[in-house]
Write a protein that binds this DNA or RNA. Sequence first.
DNA 1: CTCGGCATCCTAT
DNA 2: CTAACGATAGGATGCCGAG
Length: 413
Amino acid sequence: MVDRLIFHIDVNSAFVSWSAVEQLMNGGPDLREVPSIVGGDPNSRTGIVAAKSIPAKKYGIVTGEPVSLALRKCPNLVIAHSNFDWYVRCSRAFKSICQEYTPTMQSFSIDEVFLDMSGMHLIYPDPIATAYEIKDRIYNELGFTVNVGVSSNKLLAKMASDFEKPNKVHTLFPEEIPAKMWPLPVGDLFTCGKSSAVKLKSLNITTIGQLANTPLEQLALIFSERGAMHFHNYANGIDDSPVVDEPEDAKGYSAETTVEDDLVELEEINKILLAQADIVSARMRADGGKCGCVSVTFRNLDFVNKSHQKKLSEPTDVTDIIYKTARQLIKESWQGQPLRLVGLALTDIDRDGFEQISLFEDDGKEKRKALDSTLDSIRGRFGNGAVQRASTMDTSSRVNRMHRAKQEQNRNK
DNA sequence: CTCGGCATCCTAT
DNA sequence: CTAACGATAGGATGCCGAG
């Protein structure tokens, strides 16, 4: 196979950058120049850091930590209010510019895309110059910066875009791997999270280079055969996965809710399950799906999760069947321990043929899916209350009302 | 023994 | 003095029981 040319483009501190642009338009200060974050659910004091400015990073503030902890690290921290509609518009505008350069673009999240630039050399003879052009156009037209990673596969391009920030183009071609990637800590390797890093430590492997040069048989001592192969390939920059330009059908739909007041009554849990069944089944129906399996998840006060699932005799998209199944599942598995979280998931998704046909008839389908993944990625960072589709507005506000009622109870204690 | 079902774990944004 | 911790999705893994 001929060498590919892949770009990975990543908006620097996306939510902070986008809020900064918004505030600058209103004559405000530039959030990017001061220690700042965009943080969690504005209605809750217990939010988490969803994005941080580069100055905030210097205080040791990390994405995903509680806002209260970030404030302790930096008392001057500016906490920006989030504007999700604005973020979606920024994301669309960003992707629209990227899409001009190739038909093969994969939206990887709200602020990341992969571009397959293979075979475009007649149009763009100088890939690096093109990368700079995209980056600068985004800045000039939209007012925020991106990093561009350039390589011959998605993994290396993604690793490259994570190098020095902001507003940079980096290459990481295979011959550059020893110099640019191997000195990095293993935890910097995409898909090597905390747990894998700890395992690798037991073999005295702390850098990507050490991982790359460890024999497979040795990795198989701590990983499955598959896992050993995966990490061996990644550390050596091997990745054949294609840039997929069509959003894929969802493989599952889920909702989970963390409550302020511990759940101790089955009736309270069931109320939440009903709201979740409503929301999640509506989303599935909107995609023309039916689920063959329902599962409930719950988390106790020690953060220990349990789940219980059931296959249905036939796939369904009926809220009531899903809710009744969820009730049964929680009844079978919950033994009365106080809970801080309850969730509902629908899996084994069956698509009806209609949706497939409509691929050719309904021009709006892909657009709707693209919007869905954008909305989902916002939910991903901010949680359920962050965005609401019109179709789920009723049930969502019901949950919110319950939530507020509980907070009220707390205050009155 | 193999396969599918199930619960749990891990990783990412 | 200590504390704090969201939502969603996808995939991997290991166990167990049925055939």
